[in-house]
Design a protein around this nucleic acid. Structure first.
Length: 510
RNA sequence: GUCCCCUUCGUCUAGAGGCCUAGGACUCCAGGUUUUCAUCCUGGCAACAGGGGUUCGACUCCCCUAGGGGACGCCA
């Protein structure tokens, strides 16, 4: 940790100074997968006395939001993973938000066009969609067919001058293999026939991930790219770009992917995946990080309880295992208990206060609670369901004098399906979705909301449902709706039928 | 469908050719401590995906098969 090169100036710093990064995309709640990669990048950088950089990949103008960006920073801070360079703290390689680096990408793309390593493409998305589905039908890997490759310079110039919408694509060899090295797996070879002529610059002037990641990793001096396994297949695109620009490749480390219990890639539909959820459900950041540290990695002495400092001290890529680990909330719970019980009574009380039993956190509930109170003692029974993880549910609680069990199930299923797709957790949107579905099911809103109420609170007498949902947030809400559905015992067949019905509904509403 | 990656108890993992009768942790089961519960302690169940090689010797190296996962977007 006491690396003498730490204080050296950038000019004299040896090229071996380690720099890692995470590059989250601010398009939703902060994901545990992001926390996982942040932990490993942080631990690796700290182990080598290097720097850990945060860069915001907000190249998807439609989906990115500053609210999401803020949540990501909050999550990293809650976890205690501080970054040496990035938004807020700044640094010499900024700006660290890709939306603020547009001229840089444009410049680099122009360079590629001049060298005929990239070319403008005027194809419409309809044509591309058709092309892809035809290729799929023929059992081929889908990819751009090169229609705009043969366009003459004069025509291109004229169409651009006429303001025709276009993108810039990269040229890719039509034969041969791309060979590269992954630190954990060794040499990997992928045929160029599998590689699409990737769009580098979108019609809106924003870069795609593939361009931005290469340009920024190089310009920011990133030496080790530690990221999820899902990126292995796009390495050839990146390597091509490094070659086109004449830049050296950083060391590549592809970590295994966190999995759902059914072994598919960890997803928000099947599991709570936001860091915020774990915070709200009462987990300690050190326990969550410790748990993530045991996913695909182990301490040399096999101890299972360790801090991130201890992890970075002993960090070694050789100790990474490649099988995709299943994220197991039961073991995380055990670990969290270990941490909680080892606290002094004073520290424990402080943790509880920091968590939720404090005025800041409860303030938004006061207007709702106060009206329904006769004695101060009424507070706890009213808010209990808002403070925990899940609630105790019984099937009987879902019995309703008018609604059939089928209607209850459909309401739960459809509403939770709709919420799964929600990117922004907004009260008005929550209301609209419920109203739409209630109408579709020919139910009064109050009826439609009955099973929702039960799933959320475990009882029908509770604080207003939409306020409760806003307070609970996306993951906590969805996990409870799913619990309710599961309790009512859905077979696979019924689930499929409901999925279909929901899909039909979505299509009918456009 | 095509390509790429992966494969030790149900789960997380140790294991880098003989130390393996495969170790630890979670879960589960049994017993003990505890007025109850929880904690805690003790014990138990449980795995090298299959088949070929290489080797005096394979969990460890190579090949094939099977299974799992991922990628194939003007999303990242």
């Amino acid at each position: 940790m006491t690396n003498p090169t730490d204080s050296a100036s950038p000019q004299t710093a040896p090229p071996t100074a380690v720099r890692t990064r995470i590059a989250p995309s601010p398009t939703g709640d902060p994901h545990v997968g992001t926390a996982y990669m942040a932990l490993f990048n942080w631990a690796f950088a700290k182990h080598h006395g290097g720097q850990f950089v945060v860069r915001i990949e907000d190249t998807d103008a439609a989906r990115s939001s500053s609210a999401s960006e803020t949540k990501i920073f909050d999550a990293l801070r809650w976890l205690g993973l501080s970054w040496d360079e990035g938004p807020i703290v700044g640094g010499p390689a900024g700006p660290y938000r890709q939306s603020e680096r547009l001229p840089i990408y444009r410049e680099h793309v122009d360079q590629l066009i001049a060298a005929e390593q990239a070319f403008p493409c005027f194809c419409t998305s309809q044509r591309l969609d058709e092309m892809r589905s035809q290729q799929r039908e023929r059992g081929e890997t889908s990819g751009y067919d090169g229609a705009c490759l043969g366009l003459g310079a004069a025509e291109v110039e004229q169409r651009i001058a006429a303001g025709e919408s276009h993108v810039i694509r990269m040229r890719v060899p039509t034969e041969g293999d791309c060979e590269f090295r992954d630190e954990l797996r060794g040499e990997i070879s992928i045929p160029f026939t599998q590689i699409d002529m990737q769009v580098l610059l979108k019609a809106d002037g924003f870069p795609t991930y593939h361009l931005a990641v290469v340009v920024d990793d190089h310009l920011m001096g990133i030496t080790h790219v530690i990221r999820g396994e899902e990126w292995i297949n796009s390495v050839p695109k990146h390597k091509l770009l490094y070659d086109y620009f004449g830049w050296p490749m950083p060391t590549l480390v592809h970590m295994p992917l966190l999995r759902n219990p059914d072994s598919s890639k960890l997803s928000k539909r099947k599991n709570p995946t936001s860091v915020t959820y774990y915070e709200r459900a009462g987990y300690l950041p050190e326990a969550l990080l410790n748990y993530l540290g045991t996913m695909g990695w182990s301490m040399p002495d096999e101890r299972e309880i360790f801090s991130i400092q201890e992890m970075s001290e002993h960090f070694d890529l050789e100790r990474v295992t490649l099988g995709g680990p299943i994220f197991d909330p039961v073991k995380l719970g055990w670990l969290n208990g270990q941490y909680l019980r080892s606290l002094s009574p004073e520290a424990f009380m402080q943790r509880v206060a920091d968590w939720a039993i404090n005025t800041d956190h409860l303030a938004p509930l006061v207007p709702l609670i106060q009206q329904r109170t006769e004695r101060l003692a009424d507070l706890a029974p009213q808010v209990d369901y808002l403070l925990g993880d899940r609630v105790a549910l019984t099937a009987e609680a879902f019995a309703h004098k008018k609604m059939t069990p089928e209607q209850c199930v459909a309401a739960l299923h459809h509403y939770s399906s709709a919420l799964d797709e929600l990117r922004i957790w907004d009260r008005e949107v929550l209301v609209e979705l419920a109203e739409g579905l209630a109408k579709h099911q020919e139910l009064k809103l109050s009826e439609f909301l009955f099973p929702i109420f039960i799933a959320l609170a475990g009882r029908s007498v509770a604080l207003p449902v939409f306020d409760s949902m806003v307070f609970l947030g996306s993951d906590l809400t969805r996990v409870r709706l799913r619990d309710g559905l599961q309790l009512l015992g859905l077979s696979k067949k019924q689930t499929k039928k409901l999925d279909k019905a929901y899909l039909a509904y979505v299509q009918s509403t456009g």
